[in-house]
């Protein structure tokens, strides 16, 4: 039966990839937008340099994985739930872990595709010099960032119909990017907004990424990266609980 679940998982992965590449109009913007923004803010704006390129690499990397994770799960799941496909899968012996696992796998692939051009631009275009280990740690962190955003997407996908999910996913995507300090550093926000920013996973992930690249914290004060790691771990567990709750609510 182990083999059966694995076989189902590979088949689900194949199905997810086929669905994504056959609708490039959905996936392409989430791949192109982050690198376009990164290029714009790093090269086209004044007082750019290796330092701001490094800073923006940390934050735009988080931004780049948010799109595929929130939209892939939020809109994708809502759509498949709307048409009754998930109901049919729940009635069949489809392992739900294989479905979710395959979606995470494919999101990781697309997150990598969104990250790689940004990294190439940062490494070759902006002359960022970092230890090789720092590059790998940063990439690892950016990929892991998929998880909390995918869980948010999953909760939205189970809670809204497909039209609603598109709207709400956009709000979460833009809101967490802007208010988490991924576009404009949070230390430029008014104090109340700065406080609010720390409650967002995007902010916490950006803080860890900034620590890895050796850029200053968004809080303006000394940071304790371990603390950010703890906070994001707790957030992820809470988000997982929320997603499971939203999932189980379908059985009304």
């Amino acid at each position: 039966m182990k083999y059966l679940s694995l076989n189902a998982f590979f088949n689900e992965c194949g199905a997810e990839i086929l669905k994504a590449v056959r609708a490039p109009e959905y996936i392409l913007p989430t791949l192109i937008l982050p690198v376009a923004f990164y290029a714009l803010f790093t090269f086209a704006l004044p007082n750019s340099g290796a330092n701001s390129a490094r800073y923006l690499l940390a934050t735009y990397g988080v931004f780049a994985v948010m799109g595929p994770a929130i939209f892939g799960f939020g809109v994708g799941v809502a759509n498949e739930r709307d048409r009754g496909w998930l109901k049919l899968k729940r009635a069949s012996p489809a392992p739900s872990a294989a479905y979710i696992g395959a979606k995470i796998m494919v999101t990781l692939i697309f997150a990598s595709l969104a990250l790689i051009p940004i990294y190439l631009l940062a490494g070759f275009g902006a002359d960022i010099t970092m230890a090789r280990s720092a590059w790998f740690m940063l990439f690892g962190l950016h990929l892991l960032s998929v998880l909390p955003f995918a869980l948010i997407g999953l909760t939205l996908g189970f809670s809204f119909n497909s039209n609603g999910a598109i709207a709400v996913s956009n709000i979460f995507f833009l809101g967490m990017a802007a208010l988490g300090g991924l576009w404009i550093p949070a230390f430029l926000f008014p104090t109340a907004l700065q406080k609010f920013a720390t409650t967002l996973p995007s902010y916490q992930l950006a803080e860890i990424a900034l620590a890895i690249v050796g850029a200053p914290s968004q809080s303006g004060v000394d940071r304790i990266p371990m603390q950010n790691l703890m906070i994001i771990a707790i957030m992820t567990i809470v988000l997982a609980g929320l997603a499971i709750w939203a999932w189980s609510r379908q059985r009304n």
Binding site: E12, A15, K19, W85
Partner: peptide, 20 residues
């Protein structure tokens, strides 16, 4: 229950076969 539009019958049926 409707199925995803972008997969073919062969792909849909193969996927479900993998559950059993």
């Amino acid at each position: 229950a409707d199925l995803p539009d972008l997969l073919t019958p062969r792909e849909h049926i193969t996927l479900f076969a993998s559950y059993y």
